[in-house]
Amino acid sequence: MNCDKFLELMEEYIMEELDEVANRMMEKHLSECEKCRAEYRETKEIIGNLRGIKESAVIKEDVLNMNKKNIVKKAGSLKNKRPFMRFVSGAAAVVFLGMFLLTASIVAFPSFASTYLPDVPVVKQLKDVQNEYNAIKQQNEILKKENEEIKQENEELKMRIKEIGGVSIPEYQTSEGINEEDNQRIQEMVIEFIRAIYRGDIEAAKKISTEEFKKELAQNAKHYLMINRGEILFTHITNVAKEGDSYMVFVRLNDGGDADISDYQWNFEFVKRGNDFLISFAGKDA
């Protein structure tokens, strides 16, 4: 199933009106396509809101209990004007229209009913809901586009390329940070630590660590060493954030040769001892 077909059937899928085979195809595509998942979530939320509007709407009892005579009269007046009604007998029209008023889809019903019963109050009510649905969807599209533009502008403002430890690395501003001199010192220690564990030099890593973390490195050296993992490619690093007495920074990198895709994230915490910064924690996330 392609995206166009998925979007064509999406509202019926949300309303649980598809057969089992079509449902399975929709579910498979939904699991594979991020773009359609986003559209599905947005549409499902809107339809859910509309259902709430429908359930909360007060439909006058005299409309729902419209007698057969009035309905037949309405159907009869349309009999010669609407091709569709030529195939519906007077008695069948009563049953069909009555059921349609009570059970038709809130999304599909207004467009059909407004053609054949434009003056019925309940139809007008459902048409208003349909119009509101369309307005909300259009507004959501506008807001989504504006948010994407703002996000892109923010990303451009937050990122800069800088030289750290002899390599050019994109730095992202994720916090107000600390002064530039200390920020640079800590980032260079991060690069130094990672290079040390990739070449198997646990002693070099211990030299820039606190006494407590030195013990951790000594006891779990195999956990930290990344020997023979390949050439290190740093994809980006954050500026250093300070919380209490701790200084935090993370760096993303890969060792698979693709500079655009990061394999790992290393999270670091530092403490300051006199004029020196020391690593108190380093942990790797996928």
Results as ranks from 00 to 15, higher is better:
66 M>P: 01
66 M>K: 08
66 M>C: 09
67 N>V: 05
68 K>W: 08
69 K>H: 06
70 N>R: 12
71 I>D: 05
72 V>P: 04
72 V>H: 12
72 V>R: 15
74 K>V: 13
74 K>N: 08
74 K>G: 13
75 A>M: 10
76 G>M: 03
78 L>H: 13
79 K>H: 07
79 K>F: 03
79 K>T: 01
80 N>Q: 11
80 N>R: 08
82 R>P: 01
84 F>W: 07
85 M>R: 04
85 M>Q: 05
87 F>E: 02
87 F>M: 08
88 V>L: 15
88 V>T: 09
89 S>V: 01
89 S>E: 06
92 A>D: 14
93 A>V: 03
93 A>I: 00
94 V>D: 05
94 V>A: 13
94 V>Y: 13
95 V>I: 09
95 V>P: 00
96 F>D: 07
96 F>E: 12
96 F>H: 11
97 L>Q: 11
97 L>I: 14
98 G>D: 06
100 F>E: 06
100 F>T: 02
100 F>W: 06
100 F>R: 07
102 L>D: 11
102 L>A: 05
103 T>H: 05
104 A>K: 02
106 I>L: 10
106 I>T: 03
107 V>T: 05
108 A>L: 07
108 A>E: 15
109 F>S: 10
109 F>C: 04
110 P>R: 00
110 P>Y: 01
111 S>Q: 14
112 F>A: 15
115 T>W: 10
116 Y>H: 14
116 Y>E: 11
116 Y>L: 15
117 L>Y: 06
117 L>Q: 03
118 P>A: 04
118 P>T: 07
119 D>V: 03
120 V>H: 13
120 V>T: 12
121 P>I: 04
122 V>F: 05
123 V>T: 00
123 V>D: 00
124 K>D: 09
125 Q>N: 03
126 L>F: 12
126 L>D: 07
127 K>F: 03
127 K>L: 11
128 D>I: 08
128 D>L: 11
129 V>C: 07
131 N>L: 08
131 N>Q: 11
132 E>F: 07
132 E>A: 10
132 E>D: 06
132 E>V: 02
133 Y>M: 14
133 Y>R: 15
133 Y>L: 13
